[in-house]
Design a protein around this nucleic acid. Structure first.
Lengths: 347, 347
DNA sequence: GCTCGTGTTGTGAACGCTCACAGCCTAATC
DNA sequence: GATTAGGCTGTGAGCGTTCACAACACGAGC
């Protein structure tokens, strides 16, 4: 209120020199104070701090990163942050990295094409960032060539295709699927169908493929599987197509909770009861899942942990760039709720 | 794949000088080519472009912004981007600003205290950004003093308290509430209760207050109103408390769709039917709302438009900083679905 | 044939900071 | 009392870019 906020836009901000003059020391001493370096006499430090406050001095980040050759900011390439999973990761990574003192710049990719991904990557590579996180869970993205774009700046991928030779953090989708299958088998189900997410997504494909094999291992009938687009509307449409196949189906594994919601609606519209006629399992455990009708049994993904792990991995990498590439794996848990029950034939 | 991606981390990136030497011109000429300035002979330009490509030169953003005193990036302070509205705005603003060629840096605020808001604001002010967007829909935030923190850098607020003298973009909540009330009155409801969002949020408070007055104007009974936390669980708990009051209630206006979901569940648990016994109206129109059981009547907010407007406003401001402060208003629409019907007494 | 402009290119300085080093002063050591 | 060590402070250079201006060449105009 005191400062002159209606001054014309080109007010020179105070610099190290200004502070130095005000405190009667050299700019270097001010720099030392600002950077908390030792060997500054207490009295001088006081004087400098006072001047800094009086002038409302703020270090110029651009100048600093020009001099140090580090930007102290990391970039995030986010894929379709409209969806629950990615947006959760974004927020959590941001929070975790902020705690480490890093700034954040963010670019999202609207469509999942490899071209878009590369464009965004290169856009971010332009900024000479200290590190990069890529939330880009798309299969087929040429990890090698993206890695090249980034050159030597460390980067970790979230939800990369397992087996890729990159630094990555991911959730063990196979484990989640196994939990779901065990749960259904335990209830006595024998006819399991699937609505999967877009198979271009690593998570969707992993879930899809593990489900196939897990059902085989359990000796269960593998019903039809339909691909949808993560949305409730997509899940609804997929369920209708599934119903049209007239395949026997007492349990339905759905790639995420939103699609599960759509599927429930479609089943109901067709006269099926959930869970009496058909049991449903989702993925994610969105905060609303417990309040669906019926409350949704789902495989919970701990996105917050993903964010934390990612930030931790990246900071490790920043200190020790030669850390061998590996994948940090997190395990999902099953949250049983009322959308799953014993199948009708077992009743 | 050709480049040496396993080089040690400190490879000097090529600079203007390197390119200049390679092309046999001065660094200034290269700069001119990079910045698309006129008066460079076609032949020279070709030669320079060739060298740029050969060396894979990328301008150093830090150096550039040090020299120009502009960063070409704008900052977003996001409040609780975990929620649907804020996260939608974030993504949409990002998309719109990217189209204008701006980079983006992002800071979120975990709790809604004014202190947190100021901390984040100042964190962002440190970066000497070209512009700032604040998604901080909290009542009581001292807009004046935040404005001071930012000094002369243009900033627009999303969902600011209407009436604040700032550049802002917002949705006309009053209009949305009026649509909802008209809808309910049209159906014959006379006993309307409310579950509001946290009243610290401008949007929640506006909805709450307009509801009071709109009901009064319509001559309707104003039932109890309970404050909840935007979540389904909060909506559930609030609805239970509402039921405990035993107040007459044929229609329930709920501050957002998630809470509406929780409320429906609580009503059902208590033996009420929706919409036969109680009609429910939500806010937002999340993509899942159409698949709730019953499909939710809701007041749709066009967050994409908010993002676009915001980006447009900001770019205007960047070109003409003296644009008078005003509020760009967007109007919500009512999406009638099956969760509202004629009240029982009118049946 | 000389001047003048115009298009093109180059030079010096500055942006605000950090790094490496040099210098100073005081106090401890012999 | 000279020497040395160590805490503290200052100086010069450089980070990679842009800006303002100077310099050059070339053809047109008198």
């Amino acid at each position: 209120m005191v400062t002159d906020s209606r001054s014309p836009s080109r007010v020179r901000r105070p610099t190290l020199d200004d502070v130095a003059r005000a405190a009667g020391v050299s700019y270097q001493t001010v720099s030392r104070v600002v950077n908390d370096q030792p060997s500054v006499a207490e009295a001088t430090r006081e004087r400098v701090l006072h001047a800094i406050k009086a002038l409302d001095y703020r270090p110029n980040r651009a100048a600093r990163s020009l001099a140090t050759r580090r930007s102290n900011t990391i970039g995030i390439v986010g894929f379709d942050t409209r969806y629950f999973g990615p947006s959760q990761m974004l927020v959590n990574i941001e929070a975790a990295l902020k705690r480490e003192g890093y700034g954040l710049t963010f670019t999202s990719i609207d469509d999942g094409t490899v071209a878009a991904l590369q464009r965004a990557s290169s856009e971010i590579a332009d900024q000479h960032l200290d590190g990069i996180v890529m939330i880009a869970p798309i299969a087929g993205a040429d990890v090698e060539s993206i890695s090249d774009l980034f050159g030597a700046t460390p980067f970790v991928m979230i939800d990369a295709e397992p087996g890729e030779a990159v630094h990555s953090v991911g959730i063990d989708q196979a484990h989640g699927v196994r939990l779901a299958v065990e749960h259904l088998v335990g209830l006595g189900h024998r006819h399991v169908c699937e609505i999967s997410g877009p198979l271009r997504w690593n998570a969707a494909r992993e879930r899809h493929e593990t489900l196939r094999s897990a059902l085989e291992v359990a000796g269960l009938e593998r019903g039809p599987s339909i691909e949808a687009d993560w949305t409730a509307a997509g899940g609804f449409a997929a369920a209708r197509r599934l119903l049209a196949t007239r395949a026997p189906c007492t349990a339905l594994v759905v790639g995420n909770d939103q699609m599960a919601l759509g599927a429930i609606r479609a089943l109901r519209d067709d006269g099926y009861r959930v869970p009496e006629d058909v049991s449903i399992v989702g993925f994610d455990d969105v905060p609303e899942a417990a309040f669906f009708d019926p409350p949704l049994t789902t495989v919970r993904q701990d996105f917050e942990a993903v964010g934390r792990q990612c930030a931790e991995y990246l900071t490790t990498l920043l200190k020790a760039p030669d850390t061998p590439r590996h994948r940090r794996v997190l395990f999902p848990t099953l949250v049983p709720r009322a959308s799953t029950a014993r199948p009708p034939e077992a009743a």
